[in-house]
Design a protein around this nucleic acid. Structure first.
Length: 552
DNA sequence: AGCTGTCAAGGCTCGCAGGC
DNA sequence: GCCTGCGAGCCTTGACAGCT
């Protein structure tokens, strides 16, 4: 327990502030700073021959008064009946530099006699306890800019900060953000956000480009060469640098999943920017043009297939030959695909098919139909007979491996929601975590150069590092049963993902991981939001591993 | 429920009165 | 005469009431 007593000595103001802060929290006394004098200010009035205050000490004195100190004197015009905290409470704390040794801070006065009630509940409700830190305020401001309702903001920010916020606090932040943005617009500078104006036909739309995973496209695209577009069927091909060494897992000949997803995104973003001039100047599949017309596209389905050869040393992964093709469209869904080939190979080593839903950028609701000009220009130029539609997973079992994660500000993309890669990464992280835990719990294999063939010791690994993964932990029952780290090293054969609902910064989501008896090389994921009405599924994913490849 | 104008409170600086 | 600390003034932030 922090103690504070008369004549107590401190050697820095930080030490004093920390002690007072702890003391207030433990005794529920609402002290606020009421007065101080800085050394630099006091030194201005020091006369010749007089001793200076050491500037490094910061303050000459510092006084706290009770938030109920003083009397209320209105400065208003009498339009409203006013309330005031002021009720003449005399409680105060005063500390100042020692008269002789000005490097010491001495507590000169303490009066703890308050003329009002002191209680934990009251203490929590004072504005000082509700104030957000700079970083918390920055997050709140970002969320305000994302147009999240005040009530949701109140709940999320209270959970994030652990403070008892009221809705009015969020209204005040909203007001400050509006003012800040107005001033930034007036001065012609942008605020903390990277905001740019996108010209659209007859109007302008402000698009926020938060720092995000989605923005981190590699410079490899700048080195793309042999770019060729084809109108009918519609596709673009190009050669670009391969996958850098640092993207590769230690134990496989293929890049880690997230690195590969990143390279794939680089390729498709590059492809979308390619222009075709006949019959008029436009981009490959009109993504930019559709955006200007008030459409946004949200990823809905994603399937990645890897060839066995992808995991062999013999297949060169540098440079990469890429082909991105328009697949087909239905009323508001567009399916496209990307193929990556090695320098000398004709068969694609990776093929990704992706389906996007087009929504109204204002209402974020599915549009009834894509524009006529889009259909007119692309009809007949399809590369696919049917679109991608990943089936929903069967209801998950109750017994799963679970991992929670918080959606961070940097996870939000230009569409103002959690970027698709964050879901994939979250699932993959949960799987890695589950497998690591499982590895720690398995019987130890002892390999010795002198003892000959490896033996097996019963019991659990004594080096289990995860305290939640003890032998009696319920997680032991729900770890993936058939998948092992060894199987995972053989590489992913198929990834299927379905994006179901949006999620926002500050939300806590739970990833469930499980396996099914008849599919030992598959692992399934469901990312869910817990609500009072039960769990809402945001995202589903399944991974299939190459498990039986003896030649690797 | 959310927004907004208005007023209160907080936080800081500075000048000076008065105690030691 | 030195130095502490009170309190006024100013700006920013928070809270409230009334309106949409």
């Amino acid at each position: 327990m922090a103690s504070l007593r008369l004549n107590q000595v401190f050697f820095s103001w930080e030490e004093f502030f920390e002690t007072v802060s702890k003391y207030c929290a433990e005794t529920y006394q609402p002290f606020v700073k009421s007065s101080c004098k800085t050394c630099s200010q006091a030194n201005k009035y020091v006369k010749p021959g007089q001793r200076m205050y050491p500037p490094e000490m910061g303050y000459v004195y510092y006084r706290y008064s009770c938030t109920h100190a003083g009397t209320f004197k209105t400065a208003g015009s009498g339009k409203r009946e006013t309330k005031s905290n002021k009720q003449g409470c005399e409680a105060k704390i005063l500390a100042s530099l020692d008269r002789k040794d000005k490097t010491k801070i001495v507590v000169k006065q303490i009066n703890e006699e308050h003329n009002h009630e002191i209680s934990p509940l009251l203490f929590e409700s004072y504005v000082q306890q509700r104030q957000l830190s700079k970083s918390e305020k920055a997050i709140a401001e970002e969320l305000v800019r994302l147009n999240i309702p005040s009530k949701t903001l109140q709940i999320e920010m209270s959970r994030l900060s652990g403070k008892r916020l009221i809705v009015q606090d969020l209204h005040n932040i909203r007001k400050a953000v509006r003012l800040k943005d107005k001033l930034a617009a007036a001065s012609g500078t942008d605020g903390q956000l990277d905001v740019h104006q996108v010209e659209t036909a007859g109007r302008s739309e402000t698009v926020s480009t938060l720092p995000s995973l989605h923005k981190a496209h590699s410079s490899a695209n700048a080195e793309a060469r042999d770019v060729k577009t084809n109108d009918n069927p519609r596709y673009v091909t190009f050669t670009r640098p391969g996958i850098p060494d640092w993207c590769f897992d230690l134990h496989t000949n293929a890049p880690s999943l997230m690195s590969l997803v990143g390279v794939i995104e680089d390729c498709w973003v590059f492809s979308l920017a390619q222009r075709i001039s006949e019959p008029f100047e436009h981009t490959l599949i009109f993504n930019r043009e559709l955006r200007k017309d008030g459409y946004m596209n949200f990823q809905t389905d994603y399937e990645m297939n890897m060839a066995q050869a992808f995991y062999t040393d013999s297949l060169s992964k540098w440079p990469l030959r890429a082909k991105y093709a328009y697949g087909m469209h239905t009323s508001c869904f567009v399916t496209n695909f990307l193929e990556l080939r090695g320098a000398a190979s004709e068969d694609p080593m990776v093929r990704v098919t992706m389906c996007s839903a087009f929504v109204n950028s204002k209402t974020r609701k599915l549009v009834r139909s894509l524009p006529e000009w889009f259909k007119r220009t692309l009809d007949g130029k399809e590369n696919l007979q049917k679109g991608l539609n990943i089936e929903r997973l069967a209801p998950r079992p109750n017994e799963t491996y679970r991992k929670k994660m918080m959606v961070l500000l940097s996870d939000i993309d230009g569409n103002k929601h959690t970027n698709y890669k964050v879901y994939i990464r979250g699932c993959y992280d949960a799987l890695q975590h589950a497998i690591t835990t499982k590895e720690m719990l398995r019987p130890i294999k002892i390999e010795s150069a002198t003892d000959g063939p490896s033996g097996e010791m019963t019991g659990t690994n004594p080096n289990v590092g995860n305290p939640s993964a003890s032998a009696n932990d319920s997680h032991k029952e729900v770890l993936p049963k058939w998948l092992t780290a060894d199987i995972m090293k053989k590489g992913i054969k198929t990834l299927r993902a379905k994006f179901i609902k949006e999620s926002l910064c500050g939300e806590e989501v739970t990833t469930h991981v499980w396996q099914e008896r008849d599919k030992p090389l598959w692992v399934f994921f469901s990312m869910e939001r817990e609500t009072t009405n039960g769990n809402q599924v945001l995202f589903e994913m399944s991974l299939e591993y190459f498990g039986l490849m003896s030649n690797l």
